[in-house]
């Protein structure tokens, strides 16, 4: 089995993976990072979204091998070391942008990238950006509000 090394939530990790192992499987099943969720098998729901080199990626569509040499951040790596929530995480709490919490890690990762790239994004832009992330609980209303609040503060 090929070995890969990556930087995961700021720490260096090496792992032997099968060629067909998906990044989400490596994270959830081998490394115990179960914050990244699996909500579908057709790359449609975005529950599995993580950052690879700072960009949102659906980890169910990427092979673990492809992460070799890259920097991966999951929901577990977003808050500060002392537990302080990131601005997007805090905004989701403040604006009730989550109910059952299942879509939340993917939503937060995706929104974090948006806020970083396009601070001050409009409601329309936020809704378009979240195209790849499904939520069945919130009707998106409060998610959009949360992302808007974080974006207006101009911080990811």
């Amino acid at each position: 089995m090929p070995a890969i090394s990556l930087k995961l939530n700021g720490r260096s990790v090496t792992a032997e993976v099968e060629a067909r192992t998906l990044l989400v499987e490596l994270l959830r099943e081998r490394l115990g990072l179960t914050g990244t969720h699996v909500g579908c098998d057709t790359s449609q729901c975005g529950a599995c979204t993580v950052h690879v080199d700072g960009r949102s990626v659906k980890s169910c569509t990427m092979l673990a091998l492809e992460a070799d040499g890259h920097e991966v951040t999951t929901i577990e790596g977003l808050a500060a070391a002392d537990g302080t929530l990131s601005p997007v995480q805090a905004a989701f709490r403040e604006h009730h942008g989550l109910q059952c919490g299942f879509c939340t890690p993917g939503m937060v990762m995706s929104a974090t990238e948006l806020v970083r790239r396009n601070p001050g994004a409009s409601e329309h832009q936020i809704r378009e950006w979240l195209e790849g992330n499904l939520c069945r609980c919130t009707g998106y209303h409060n998610i959009v509000k949360a992302v808007q609040a974080a974006a207006q503060a101009g911080r990811g």
Partner: peptide, 19 residues
């Protein structure tokens, strides 16, 4: 009131059955 549930869900610390 802000939710008690949120902290664990926002930090990937929820425990769903598949976890």
């Amino acid at each position: 009131m802000k939710r008690k549930e949120d902290l664990r869900f926002l930090t990937g610390k929820g425990t769903y059955v598949d976890d």
